[in-house]
Computed example of a mutant assay.
Amino acid sequence: MLPWSRTARGLRPLAALLLAAAALAPGTAAHADAGPTKSAAPDRGWNDYDCKPSAAHPRPVVLVHGTLGNSVDNWLGLAPYLVARGYCVFSLDYGQLPGVPLFHGLGPVEKSAGQLDAYVDKVLAATGAREADLVGHSQGGMMPRHYLKFLGGADEVNALVGIAPSSHGTTMNGLTKLLDVFPGAREYVTENTPALTDQVAGSPFLTRLNEGGDTVPGVTYTVIATKYDQVVTPYRSQFLDGPEVTNVLIQDKCAADLSGHVAIGLADRLAFHEVANALDPEHAEPTTCLSAVS
């Protein structure tokens, strides 16, 4: 491949990021309905506010989607998987932009953490549980840490499981540096889709989030990552340090697993198996390649 071809291919993620900001800017969403949208999970047994946690699974599970995701599409694989194993499962929409339907997780991450706080309160009130467990993909595995650290979430949460979380931000293989090469690019993305620049490695939001340590007392943390992640890079930046932390590289469980950033959250049953282990560590079973069909 010619050098210029490699460069052009490498610029595509940045171009996609800028185009997403342009396409989702409130001023350009001429045909979208005004205000945040509400989506209801299909009849698969989750978001059932009559569900009462069992003795075997005493905490409700709240699923937190990633950037450009929503409460349904991100969880068409994992939510039924957990419901089938006896969990009360709930999912929220957060980070909505005015006039932008379906694609959420784009607003300021700090504000999204406040939405999560209110949603967990709603779930606990409905189920009668004292604590919840959180499972998030991408931004959804990082954003809850703001809630835990600054909004009192540690008193309401037992465990946080992050699937390919943007724990320490991303460099997108170095391409985020180009935001400062193109005049006005960083400002434009920040103004129109602030969650994107909040997740760039070294952002003011992430600097504050990670000051003084990655974890807070009283919460267990699990990170499930893939070495083929091309969105949150380097992939080891997803891992957390601190007590009560378990970092899992999915290829250490099955070298044949080729999941990237999206697939590990949407469809990877090995990752789902690790989620189940993290939610019920007393009954954890080894994850192997055969877990894909279990």
Rank of each mutant, 00 (worst) to 15 (best):
A159S: 15
G10W: 11
G260Q: 04
N47V: 12
M1H: 10
P217D: 12
G69Y: 00
A40Q: 12
R12F: 14
G141N: 09
N173S: 11
R12K: 14
T7Q: 13
H57T: 09
V109M: 13
T127D: 00
P58R: 09
T246M: 10
P36G: 04
T193I: 13
P13Y: 10
A276T: 09
V62E: 02
K253W: 00
A263F: 06
L178E: 13
A185V: 10
C51D: 04
L209P: 03
Q139V: 06
S5N: 09
A278N: 05
W4C: 06
H137I: 06
A195R: 07
T193V: 15
V83Q: 07
G128C: 05
D252F: 08
G212L: 10
V219I: 13
T197P: 10
L116P: 01
L24D: 03
G27W: 11
C254Q: 00
A284H: 11
H65K: 01
V161W: 10
G213D: 10
A32W: 03
A132K: 04
L18P: 01
S203L: 11
D33W: 10
S237C: 04
D180N: 14
L92P: 02
A185G: 12
L179S: 12
Y235G: 03
D155R: 14
R145Y: 02
A23N: 12
L92C: 00
P36K: 06
A30Y: 11
D48Y: 11
L258H: 11
V61N: 01
A271S: 15
A271G: 03
R208Q: 15
K52T: 12
K38Y: 09
S294F: 13
V275P: 02
D133Q: 15
G86K: 10
Y147V: 09
G218T: 12
A263V: 11
D214S: 07
S112I: 08
L102R: 09
Y119S: 05
L270A: 03
A185T: 11
R186L: 13
V135H: 08
A30V: 12
D214Y: 05
E285L: 15
G69E: 00
I163T: 04
L196V: 15
V219Q: 07
L17V: 15
G265M: 05
G35S: 06
V293D: 09
G77E: 02
L175M: 14
F239E: 09
G114F: 04
L116D: 00
N70P: 02
A84F: 05
A21S: 15
V83Y: 06
V189W: 02
A276G: 04
R269A: 09
A32T: 05
T127W: 01
P194C: 07
A23M: 09
V232W: 02
D121M: 06
R236L: 08
H273L: 07
D214G: 07
T171G: 02
V100N: 01
V262F: 11
L76S: 00
P98K: 02
T207R: 15
G174I: 12
L2S: 14
A129F: 02
L134A: 07
I224S: 00
D48I: 11
D93Y: 05
D48N: 15
V216I: 08
I250G: 00
L106G: 00
A278G: 03
